[in-house]
């Protein structure tokens, strides 16, 4: 199989998923709305202590982003499983991991990227200083793809179960914890004004690692779910 047809299969599937997402755009707003509402409610609940809000701000944004990602995960393979498209992917002339990568990228573009775009606004709402906002954005652009990639393995394992929601959360959330710890720590360090190279390097390493390994694991999990 030549590289050319691999790339064309990748772009074909990416385009397909983006078209499908566009035709069901009402469903796309859900994770973003969840993210914005949760972070907007926090200052109201905590009260008017700017120092306290600033202290919890990075954590609130990241926990909300994490839960929003979890909320949207199930949709990644659900409809393809239900209508039999997933079987067709398994039986395609291309490696399944390439197709999985295209699907995860499409999923991130419609669920992860909007969070990244909305984040600066919410950062202001949570009293995060302007100097730390670029770091917050960096952690989000490095971290949210990791959430989608790791999540894809869990979804692939639970897509055959009728009520996989709880199992999915139990399976995936522990794996999300390292991303949460290093991302919030990076933002907190940036607020204090200390360089954040270490945390960002670790987040980048996580991204590269999951980018290489997650599609393979997802492809294998899908094979188990379908057989």
């Amino acid at each position: 199989m030549s590289t050319l047809s691999l790339t064309s299969a990748f772009t074909l599937l990416l385009k397909r998923d983006m078209t499908l997402a566009y035709r069901r755009r009402a469903e796309l707003v859900n994770p973003l709305l969840f993210f914005v509402l949760v972070t907007a409610m926090f200052p109201l609940g905590i009260g008017n202590d700017p120092k306290l809000i600033e202290a919890v701000g990075p954590g609130v944004i990241w926990v909300a982003a994490l839960l929003a990602a979890l909320l949207s995960l199930d949709a990644m393979f659900r409809s393809d499983y239900d209508d039999g498209s997933l079987e067709q992917f398994m039986l395609s002339a291309h490696p399944v991991s390439i197709l999985v990568l295209a699907k995860v990228l499409a999923h991130w573009l419609v669920t992860g990227l909007p969070l990244f775009i909305a984040a600066p606004l919410l950062a202001v709402l949570l009293n995060i200083p302007g100097d730390a906002i670029p770091t917050l954005m960096l952690t989000l652009i490095l971290g949210t793809p990791v959430l989608s990639l790791i999540g894809s393995v869990g979804v692939a394992l639970t897509v055959g179960l009728r009520r996989g929601g709880v199992i999915l959360s139990l399976l995936i959330l522990p794996l999300y914890v390292p991303v949460l710890i290093f991302a919030t720590d990076a933002v907190k360090t940036a607020i204090v004004g200390i360089p954040t190279t270490a945390q960002l390097s670790i987040l980048s390493a996580m991204l590269v690692g999951s980018l290489v390994l997650a599609p393979l694991a997802t492809a294998a999990s899908l094979r188990i779910s379908l057989s």
């Binding site: 397909r16 078209t19 499908l20 409809s79 239900d82 209508d83 039999g84 498209s85 079987e87 067709q88």
Partner: peptide, 15 residues
């Protein structure tokens, strides 16, 4: 070399 047609059509309803 194979094409599979199962119980489910494998077509996307929105396309």
């Amino acid at each position: 070399h194979t094409a599979y047609l199962g119980h489910k059509d494998g077509s996307k309803q929105d396309l």
